[in-house]
Design a protein around this nucleic acid. Structure first.
Lengths: 237, 237
DNA sequence: ACCTGAACACCGTTCAAGT
DNA sequence: ACCTGAACACCGTTCAAGT
């Protein structure tokens, strides 16, 4: 009786929990959670609808297409960076401090959302020169402002922006990949990379397999970032 | 008359050209070509079949699944590196020469196959510690051998391997992305990034838009590679 | 031995229809 | 105003059947 019919109270109508009414932000968040749980490949409009106790078709009222849904998810995840207190402070301690905080903030984001991060890294951006993972005009402006204010020439500021992007993409993409994320359109757990590779033909690999399997990502990230900052610093004089 | 029936000669049977009989390598090559022309997203078993004048179902005799097809395409493209005369020579001129040649070979590969490269960069590898874009045990062994032979400790050789991979992924992925490739699961040309972004709120971006749109990828690649080699060199002493 | 037709269980997306 | 059912044009994949 309590199950059907009358649109009485707004809660307790469904056994599995209530349904707070659809809106775009709720869809994007559910999408991010779904991807983190099952991977992008598994995300279909129909399944995401089911997750929200709604038919797939309802989503189209808030999201024009699956592609746009993915873009929206990326955007909403990246926007977490604005509320990271370690990152989003005025760059009053110099450009190196600013870049360090930004880089570490993005690394936290990547590690927190290992399945979404590849999308952040690979979806086309707002403008061709907006390079991931700094996906918004606002961050690019902020980055370039920090550099030029610090005395970098326009050319060097732009070059620093490119070097910084490449550094982050390379390190973070490979870090989340090692974390077991699928960074491409795959999903099968029953798939290839489970079986142990046969190393009999590769004596050095055999010997170094222990070292190769160690996780040194934090150290390598910091070391490479440090080297990058040094390199940029040398362009300042 | 010449159109139908008798399986007479092996040529001229179809107006659109003859059909040399299916085999795995032919499928993989057609797949690579198709992706370069239309993007990964457009590649379906049915369409690739049509490209080969065959029903989709026939492909399953040579390729277990679409996923495996993509892996095979990646592998066959990466294998071009073995026949690059600039790369595949014994490292007799020192480790720096070896790394330079390898890096430039991979860059040529990326630029030659801008649509396939993101797959090279993002598909899961044979073993978890095989990092793209060096996707084969053989290359990893060769890389580590060159480094240890040059006097690097095991630890430093492995660290160099990781730094080198990250460097290549970051730079080449962003380079092919700028080249207009879709580096993620997108395709729509009718899509977002066409419209000119509104920069009125971002004065510095407005001022630097010219610089930001310049292609400096070759120079930046070389500069970053140089810095990396320097950094590795300093670990040798 | 190699290819195909028909079928199954899914997709994204549209649109008229329900409440 | 918001959600849904039915439908369309696609998918990947299986398998019995054709030649």
């Amino acid at each position: 009786m309590a199950e059907s019919g009358t649109p009485a109270s707004s809660d307790g109508d469904h056994p599995g929990g209530d349904r707070p009414r659809l809106d775009r932000q709720r869809i994007l968040e559910a999408g991010a959670v779904f991807i983190e749980e099952h991977g992008v490949r598994q995300l279909s409009m129909r399944r995401l609808g089911a997750e929200l106790d709604v038919e797939a078709m309802s989503l189209y009222r808030y999201v024009p297409s699956r592609e746009d849904l993915l873009d929206g998810i990326v955007e909403s995840v990246v926007d977490e960076l604005y509320s990271d207190p370690e990152v989003y402070v005025e760059p009053h301690h110099g450009w190196q401090d600013y870049l360090l905080r930004l880089a570490h903030g993005l690394r936290r984001l990547a590690v927190k959302h290992p399945q979404v991060f590849p999308l952040i890294a690979t979806r086309p951006a707002e403008a061709p020169w907006v390079r991931p993972p700094l996906r918004s005009l606002r961050w690019v402006e902020s980055f370039l402002r920090a550099m030029t204010n610090a005395g970098f020439s326009n050319e060097n500021a732009v070059e620093a922006y490119r070097a910084f992007s490449s550094f982050l993409i390379g390190h973070l993409l490979l870090e989340v990949a090692a974390l077991g994320a699928d960074i491409g359109p795959v999903e099968d757990t029953s798939h290839s990379p489970s079986r142990q590779a046969d190393l009999t033909e590769y004596p050095l690999l055999q010997e170094l397999q222990g070292l190769l399997s160690e996780d040194r990502s934090k150290h390598e990230f910091d070391a490479a970032l440090d080297a990058l900052l040094e390199r940029l610093d040398s362009q300042l004089t």
